[in-house]
C-alpha cells in the first residue's frame, strides 16, 4: 500500500523523527493494551446497556452489519452507473435513493454522488472528523482519518493527489468536497478507455476504494 498511503510505512517509536524522509506527520500511535479512548468506549458502552438505551445484541448486530460493508458495494454502484445511463441519472440526482435500489442503506446520512469527467475531478475529505460513506465503502482507511490528509487535501489538493500517483493538468477543474455535516460523498469515476464491451463484473474489478474517494482513477489494464 506504500503507493497509496502517505502514512503507511514502518514506524518505530524508539527513534527520533529524522529518519530519512522529509515529510512531517503526527506520530502513528499503536497502543499496547487499552488506551484512554478504548477504556472510555467500553465505559460508555456498559453505561448505555445498563441504562437500557441499547442492548449488547444491538451492538453485535451493528458490528456484524459493518463487517459486510466493503468497497465492493461502491464498485457495484459505479459499474452499474457506467452501464445503465438511466441509473446514473438517478444516482446523480439522489444518491441515497439510487443506492437503496441496489439494497444499500445509507442510515442517518444522505449520499451525494459527484461525477468525474475529462474536465472535472472530485476528491472527498472530512476535515472535522472522518465522515465517510461507510455503508457503501466500509471502514475508512487510516490515511483518510490522518491529520495529514485531512488538513492538506483542502489546502494543496493537487500536491496530495500527486502523492497518490494522480497528476491532474491545470485544464482539469478540481473540486474538493468537505463532508463536514450531514451528507456523505462518493466519487463516480470516469469510465476508462479500453473497457468498451466489458461485463459489469469486469468493470467492478477495476473500481477501487481510492477511485471512489477521488485520490486515484480507474485503469483498464
Amino acid at each position: 500500500m506504500a503507493t497509496t498511503d502517505p502514512d503507511a510505512h514502518d514506524h518505530h517509536h524508539d527513534h527520533d523523527h529524522n529518519h530519512g524522509h522529509n515529510h512531517s506527520h503526527d506520530p502513528i500511535e499503536v497502543a499496547e493494551g487499552a488506551g484512554e479512548y478504548e477504556i472510555m468506549v467500553h465505559a460508555i458502552k456498559e453505561l448505555l446497556i445498563e441504562k437500557g438505551v441499547i442492548t449488547g445484541e444491538d451492538i453485535r448486530k451493528t458490528l456484524e452489519f459493518m463487517d459486510t460493508r466493503t468497497p465492493a458495494l461502491g464498485a457495484k454502484v459505479v459499474a452499474r452507473a457506467w452501464i445503465d445511463p438511466e441509473f446514473k441519472k438517478r444516482l446523480l440526482i439522489n444518491g441515497t435513493a439510487a443506492v437503496a435500489e441496489m439494497g444499500i442503506p445509507m442510515g442517518d446520512a444522505e449520499l451525494i454522488v459527484v461525477e468525474n469527467s475529462k474536465d472535472v475531478h472530485n476528491v472527498i475529505v472530512c476535515t472535522l472528523c472522518s465522515c465517510y460513506p461507510r455503508t457503501v465503502l466500509g471502514l475508512p482507511p487510516d490515511w483518510y482519518k490522518s491529520r495529514n490528509y485531512r488538513s492538506r487535501v483542502v489546502v494543496e489538493p493537487r500536491a496530495v493527489l500527486k502523492e497518490f500517483g494522480t497528476e491532474l493538468p491545470n485544464s482539469v477543474t478540481l473540486r474538493t468536497h468537505d463532508s463536514n455535516a450531514d451528507m456523505r460523498y462518493l466519487v463516480l469515476p470516469e469510465r476508462p478507455a479500453g473497457t468498451e464491451g466489458w461485463s459489469e463484473e469486469q468493470l467492478v474489478a477495476i473500481v477501487t476504494r481510492d477511485c471512489m474517494v477521488g485520490v486515484a482513477v480507474p485503469k483498464a489494464a
Binding site: V154, P157, R158, D178, D182, M183
Partner: peptide
Amino acid sequence: LYRVRIRQTDIWPDYKGSDKDVLELE
C-alpha cells in the same frame, strides 16, 4: 442545509492549481 461552493483562490491566497478549482462544503 446548503452546499456552498467557494473558489480555492478565495480561501488560500497562494493556492497552487487552476483558478477554477473549488472547495465545496455544507
